[in-house]
């Protein structure tokens, strides 16, 4: 929709231009979230796309995803040998409620920064132990684990003027095996729960619960837990929530079902 109070869009050419950010001035990436709600508080936007960040950089220690990389670009990254976790990219894009036309503009960083419980890039980042590079307003760089980024329903650690620069997926996680489950109140609806399991080559297991809880919940184990152990730990989670996309008690119950499916799937694959 038209953001009628926005009087200027400044294309950022360097990090210095980000100093314009602050109260009333927000960063613009794909725009699919920003332009989807009235923003009467905004008077200006700073366009991040003009910074020209390379979308996807593959290196020996993993993958660096620019915050401005679109979901479409991420989903189309050609398969990299040895990255057994890569199918998760497409799976998580598929958890976005927005259509494939939204993938063409929505960015990985924008999805993280919106910090919706159902944000599928949050699921991807926390499940793969991503490290996020934040450009703080004061010029400092800060690297923090994805698991600490989202703090609640649409809240995160960013302060006004801070910008998420990139998402680094470490090689170790990319070489893990993953299993993905999503459920909503309708076949392709806004996620009620998105769960990702990751079984590392060293046998370690992680279950990321998103969508069903106000912020991501991570369960880590040195080895694959039993069904009972996993169930008990899921039951102990306290941040299930209710909104039009599902009631808290249902989210808790279906997360238990999906968590067990993931555990079983990865157990079968580890045996195979």
């Amino acid at each position: 929709m038209d953001l009628n109070t926005v009087a200027s869009i400044t294309p950022a050419r360097s990090r210095d231009d980000l100093r314009l950010l602050g109260p009333g001035v927000a960063p613009l990436a794909g725009g699919s979230e920003l332009f989807a709600s009235p923003r009467p508080e905004l008077v200006g936007l700073v366009d991040l796309l003009s910074l020209g960040w390379p979308a996807l950089v593959i290196s020996d220690d993993g993958l660096e995803i620019a915050a401005t990389c679109t979901l479409a670009a991420l989903s189309r990254l050609p398969a990299v040998p040895g990255w057994t976790a890569q199918p998760l990219f497409l799976e998580c894009c598929g958890a976005l409620f927005g259509s494939f036309k939204i993938w063409n503009v929505a960015t990985v960083g924008g999805n993280l920064c919106t910090s919706l419980p159902a944000g599928p890039m949050t699921a991807l980042a926390v499940a793969l132990d991503a490290e996020l590079l934040v450009w703080r307003r004061d010029g400092q760089d800060e690297v923090l684990p994805a698991s600490e980024f989202v703090t609640g329903n649409m809240t995160n650690v960013l302060e006004p003027g801070d910008v998420l620069r990139s998402i680094h997926l470490p090689l170790a996680a990319l070489r893990a095996r993953t299993a993905y489950r999503k459920i909503a109140l309708s076949p392709l609806g806004r996620s009620g729960a998105v769960l990702v399991g990751r079984l590392d080559p060293d046998g370690g297991f992680l279950l990321a619960v998103t969508g069903a809880t106000v912020r991501p919940e991570l369960l880590r184990y040195p080895s694959l837990p039993t069904a009972a152990e996993l169930r008990a730990d899921l039951d102990a989670i306290g941040s299930w929530f209710t909104d039009p996309h599902g009631a808290a008690d249902w989210r808790r119950a279906v997360s238990a079902v999906l968590g067990e499916e993931i555990r079983t799937e990865l157990e079968d694959r580890s045996v195979a």
Partner: peptide, 23 residues
């Protein structure tokens, strides 16, 4: 006006977008 219904879809250099969300 929120990118959900698709009635405003157009092609930009052949790529479909929801034009209500496109600056």
């Amino acid at each position: 006006d929120t990118g959900d219904c698709g009635a405003c879809s157009v092609l930009l250099d052949g790529v479909p977008v929801h034009s209500c969300l496109y600056p």
